[in-house]
Amino acid sequence: MSPLSNLRMSEPLFSNSFLARTLRRRSFFRVVGATVATSTLVLAGCNDDNDPTPTSSTPSLTLGSGDNGLLNYAYLLEQLEAAFYQKVVDAFPSDFTAEDKAAFVDLRDHEVIHREFFRYALGTNAYDSAGTSLTFDFSSFTLTTRAGVYAAARTLEDTGVAAYNGAAKLITDVTSLRLLAKIASVEARHAAFVRDQAQPGSFAATDVITASGDAAGLDTAKTPLEVVELIAKFVPATIVASSLPTI
């Protein structure tokens, strides 16, 4: 499924008329903010050549700036993880064991708790507080086999760990820093667990833990821009992270 078709599926309540769609986008953009979104809208309005490429009509998802921007970033990551685990729990692979199932119910519950925690913390600052919810696109994963599911979980959890490790120095409020650290180590526990299931003994292998040099023995840290690039294929919107802190 293309990101565009996913997005349309997630907007069933609105008329398909061009005017209605445009107005609705306008209000969405006002909430998530932003000049970048407005220019996208203008491009969409000018596009009359039936070009099916999703870029012209893909909405923008603007994370914002400062600590709220970082909390929106964490919120989006937790939404993504929660949606992934819910999808697996809704249709377990046929070769999943009882232990696999119990673990994935735990993982789903943890990520839903993280997601709702950030949604509550953000309140009206949540990028989707107007009610638009995204339907994530997991079509790049194989979710019909145990091996495929664990490989997918490994990708998402390692990304989450690297994202939290990179975000710590960017957050200003000390309470938020403490809370991110409380969640980060749970994500690292998840990552190690799913990695061990995907490949025994790979809980802290050299693809995630630096092997040599000054950062030897340290886990991966990624900037928001690096992470946004990694998760773009799952998200049916253009993620605008350019206002997030960088130092």
Partner: peptide, 21 residues
């Protein structure tokens, strides 16, 4: 220092998870 510490912190969490498994 902060980034060094949180990157060591998550490695410890991976270790803990594996020992528990």
């Amino acid at each position: 220092l902060l980034e060094s510490a949180v990157r060591a912190h998550s490695v410890e969490a991976r270790h803990a998870s594996h020992i528990r498994t």
